[in-house]
Structure formats: C-alpha cells, structure tokens
Design a binder for these strands. Structure first.
Length: 113
DNA sequence: AGATTGACTAACC
DNA sequence: AGGTTAGCCAATC
C-alpha cells in the first residue's frame, strides 16, 4: 500500500464528482459510475475507500443504490458508519426507519438537462 | 504480468 | 425473502 501515492486520474474524477454533491443531499455509487461513464460502482467505492480525504471530498454523501449507507473509511459498519449517518443527519438528510436515506434527498447529476 | 480484492449491482435460485 | 452467482473496473498483492 502506498498511502502517499498521488491520486490517479480516475480517482481525481471520482473526487470531483463527489465534490459536486450539495450538502443535505446524497448520491449513489451507481450515479457516480454513470456520470464517470464507468459501468462499475465498485470501482467508485474503491477510489473513495483509498482516499479518506475528509470533508474536502464529502464521501459521506455517497450511498448504495438501495439507499442504505454503504461504507465509510473502509468499513461497512462500526463507529465510522455511525459518524457517516450523523454527518448526513446534521446536513439535513432524513432516514427511514430501516436505516436508508429518504429518496427525496437523492441528488442526480442532471446538469444538462 | 497475472491473480485477487473491494465503501457495488443486478439477476438468479 | 434471503443466499448465491455473475458482471463490472480500477487498485493492490
């Protein structure tokens, strides 16, 4: 592992897209994958996981397609996940009782209409 | 250079 | 409804 390696082009694209997510909204790995013209949401997750850049890149606003939280800082559950949930809540994102994000908070990259 | 892994998804059984 | 399989793609071993 080279934690100090420079970000790859792909990762850079992922970060930029992630930065576009406004506070109080979330997006899915799938949306990011489509936006980056990549058919693998997994690759998106990989990029985010290896770059726990904090609020600079709001990776906490990225959730799974079924609107469950997904992971955070390399773990799919645990204290970091609780943190992720809390961050979103503070930003105004509401959760359903099953722990998923309310779909109304789902951001889509529609820039061009 | 080849095989494995992973913050995923959808399709199957 | 819940577990398994298969596809996906970049990073890592």
């Amino acid at each position: 592992m080279d934690p100090n390696r420079p970000p790859t082009d792909f990762e850079t694209r992922v970060f930029e897209a992630t930065r576009l997510i406004p506070a109080g909204k979330v997006t899915t790995y799938r949306e990011l994958a489509l936006f980056l013209e990549c058919n693998s949401a997994q690759a998106i997750g990989q990029a985010l996981k290896r770059n726990p850049f904090a609020p600079q890149v709001p990776c906490h606003r990225v959730v799974k397609t079924d609107l469950s939280l997904g992971g955070f800082h390399g773990q799919t559950e645990g204290p970091w996940l609780a943190k992720k949930r809390k961050l979103l809540t503070e930003e105004g994102v509401a959760f359903s009782e099953n722990g998923t994000v309310n779909p109304e908070f789902c951001h889509r990259f529609k820039g061009s209409k």
